[in-house]
Design a protein around this nucleic acid. Structure first.
Length: 408
RNA sequence: GGGGAGAUACCAAAGUGGCCAACUGGGGCAGACUGUAAAUCUGUUGUCGUAAGACUUCGUAGGUUCGAAUCCUGCUCUCCCCA
């Protein structure tokens, strides 16, 4: 794409922008900005702030990142803010989990890891990346106090998570009030046109709007994306709930996890985390209702394809059919070699494979029939055996951990 | 500044000198079932050990006791009320 590219019509742009979007505050202002941008040939500046404390990106993060990508594809300017400053203070949002403040090196490392992963979604050739430590760091205490004076305690407590914590008597540290202000200050500094975020960011994004107005700037448009519900179908996707699909995950896990989402999320996932055409979305909605089995396989395939390519997506589908549907041994089961004729105790073998976190857990699984050797359930925790040279045995631990034991 | 309450395993929450590796719920894991790694039902859930048992764990550091998650003292942190 060249810099003097022609923008799509405002209507066409708006259609792309609104896909999956929860709320645009205020939409008319966005339209006005788009019009002006097209007329003057000036791209809009789109801001997305990210916290480099947890560098593992999952599909939940991808929702907003993908929206950013869409803006890039429409010809606008993407600015990714690494929250290096806030990360060094230590975001206390997880109440009693006092997160250890990160050092500058850790921030650097995490940020790099984040960017590496975000590259799978964003067009890095047209992306600027900045660190808010650059302008928040040098602020004086007086500057901070002036900033703090621009809002009120009542306004802060309005915020949903604060008021909840306030009511349930959970601690709120004073500096947490400063977070939205810090984030808003980023907008004042950048003078961006639009800021993206999840719906949980609404308050923070609005603070940015407020501060920009206060600074006599044209205030940013706040664009909120829904929080993707995780594979458990109830809570938002998050690593701590272990209901996530990581964008770095291997194709097999990605595929299987995608299949485990509840049927009524199929459409949402198609809309928010895949590239299927808008025109296809409608028929997919019907398919998701009438033939959830296949629709979900299509979804899993589409997701794996997006991050690993068509080949891997095919392989993942085969793997799933093999192991889960037909309960066969996967082609890529790891091989463990043992000296032929040697007396082998199954309990220790399983410990070697790392398939079970502890011997106690292995014994429990044995008692419950979760361990098989060549299709035979082994329930005797003292079971021993030996392998002939070149002999192979198939070990299955739990639902889906397979290994080949080979005598050498 | 004064007064009160509290900190228990992944989370929530019982336990208030030995029967406590610690009730219960959630989560996790396994089995059955299933289009599914969903739902449901059942079982299980500190580590090591074939076992007997040993070891570590009830905010933290000490103390009392034959014996402490439980009693005492210091410390750290949190919540509430008053100012």
């Amino acid at each position: 794409m060249t810099t003097d590219m022609k923008f799509l019509s405002v209507e066409e742009q708006l259609e792309v922008i609104k896909r999956g979007t929860t709320e645009i505050v205020p939409e008319e202002e966005l339209i006005a900005k788009l019009k002006k941008s097209k007329k003057t040939g000036t791209p809009l500046k789109i801001k997305l702030g990210v916290d480099p404390t947890r560098p593992d990106l999952h599909l939940g993060h991808s929702v907003v990142l993908r929206k950013m990508r869409q803006f890039q594809d429409l010809g606008h300017e993407a600015v990714l803010i690494i929250g290096g400053f806030t990360a060094m203070i230590g975001d206390p949002t997880g109440q009693n989990t006092t997160r250890p403040p990160l050092t500058a090196e850790e921030v650097e490392q995490n940020a790099q890891s984040y960017i590496d992963q975000a590259k799978k979604i964003l067009d890095t050739s047209r992306l600027s990346i900045v660190n808010n430590a650059d302008w928040l760091g040098p602020m004086s205490f007086m500057d901070v106090i002036r900033l703090a004076s621009k809002t009120t305690v009542a306004r802060m407590i309005e915020r949903d998570d604060f008021s909840k914590r306030f009511e349930t008597k959970e601690p709120i540290s004073l500096h947490e009030f400063l977070y939205p202000l810090a984030q808003g200050q980023d907008s004042v500094h950048l003078q961006n046109d639009v800021e993206l975020g999840g719906t949980d960011q609404k308050f923070n994004l609005l603070v940015g709007r407020h501060l920009m107005k206060d600074d006599n700037q044209e205030p940013q448009i706040c664009l909120m994306m829904p929080l993707l519900v995780g594979t458990d179908g109830s809570a938002k996707m998050s690593k701590s709930y272990d209901n996530y699909i990581g964008i770095d995950e291997n194709p097999n896990d990605m595929y299987g996890k995608a299949l485990s989402i509840p049927d009524d999320l199929i459409y949402t996932y198609f809309e928010l985390v895949t590239d299927v055409e808008k025109s296809e979305l409608y028929s997919l909605k019907t398919k998701a209702e009438q033939d959830p089995r296949n629709a979900k396989h299509d979804l899993a395939y589409a997701i794996v394809k997006l991050y690993h390519g068509e080949e891997e997506a095919k392989k993942a589908r085969n793997h799933f059919e093999q192991t889960v549907i037909n309960k066969e041994v996967p082609d890529d089961a790891p091989v463990f070699k043992y000296t032929a004729g040697e007396e082998l105790r199954l309990l220790s073998i399983i410990s070697d494979t790392g398939f079970s976190p502890s011997n106690g857990e292995t014994k429990r699984m044995m008692k419950q029939g979760g361990i098989t050797l060549d299709d035979k359930k082994i329930t005797d925790i003292n079971f021993s055996f030996s392998l002939q040279e070149q002999e192979e045995s198939v070990l299955k631990v739990g639902k889906r951990k397979y290994g080949i034991l080979k005598g050498v």
